[in-house]
Write a protein that binds this DNA or RNA. Structure first.
Lengths: 153, 153
DNA sequence: GAAAAGTAGTTGTGTTCGCAACCATTCTTT
DNA sequence: AAAGAATGGTTGCGAACACAACTACTTTTC
């Protein structure tokens, strides 16, 4: 309650532009991945694996880096598994865990899609911004993420 | 093809922070609306109506401002209609169109939720940012939106 | 002014996801 | 070492949404 403490015009603009544009931006970038039969979630899954040592990760860790629930990852895996972009391997140490391994086919597709994807990110976002805006977005979202992480304990 | 034209560290940081944080931010802000039995989509629907002349809009126009498909809005309406936050009125001029009208109950709930919501936006986002960052986010997303709009014709 | 094209809204269908319940396995406690 | 708690993964269910097909009107075209 108390005084509404309304947003200033600049603040309102930042909030409204962010909320109205971010979805469209992601959708547009995702659209450019369609020729590769990938959506943005698949791409990020492959990218995370490719950056991991031995190009594999436990399901659990992968779910966390992708910000998916465990169930959500299980479902998302169906697609990339069927396309043979990744494979699964049961751990011997701990029989609960399953490793997701990037296949050579998955790596090849990622390497093929990456330049296009990078180009999308540039064309849709980066290339329109000044270096000041780019730095500001980086630091702003880092601060927001930091606070969110702190708030959830 | 061609050189990957990789992102600079600042660019990479902006992109990664944006993509990893924006979803969490929206979810956190949405969480604060739960006590009012609203999700962010409902809130925005009510807010858009409240800002319209006579607090009503055609389904079609509302779908556009909310960036929903026509079908998506029909489904979203079910919730707010059942909660009596909005009502529907058929147009006499054009029997195809239906107007969505904010009810007094909807307006009352919006007025009750607004301060909390504003406070969320401040606490989760605005208050952590410098005024330069706020201006940069506004202008950056405006430019991105402008380009996206231009690209879709 | 009749046919064709366009527009408004609804309704199947399919996708993606979270949540909660569940099973199997491992770790902790005593 | 047995009981309980925690962890990793899957599955059933339901929510939100896009898309395409459909109905019902309206506008355009010739």
């Amino acid at each position: 309650m108390s005084e509404p403490n309304w947003l200033t015009p600049d603040e309102m603009r930042a909030w409204r532009m962010f909320i109205s544009t971010s979805g469209d931006l992601l959708k547009a970038i995702e659209g450019d991945l369609a020729p590769f039969r990938l959506d943005l979630g698949d791409y990020q899954l492959l990218a995370m694996l490719s950056e991991s040592p031995e190009q594999q990760l436990r399901m659990c860790d992968l779910a966390e880096t992708l910000q998916l629930s465990r169930g959500g990852l299980t479902r998302r895996m169906e697609g990339v598994l069927k396309a043979k972009l990744v494979s699964r391997r049961r751990s011997d140490d701990d029989k609960r865990v399953a490793y997701v391994v990037l296949t050579s086919k998955g790596l090849a597709l990622l390497k093929k899609a990456a330049p296009t994807h990078l180009c999308s990110v540039r064309r849709m976002m980066i290339d329109h911004l000044t270096s000041g805006e780019i730095k500001a977005i980086g630091s702003a979202f880092a601060k927001i993420a930091d606070h969110l992480g702190r708030e959830m304990d």
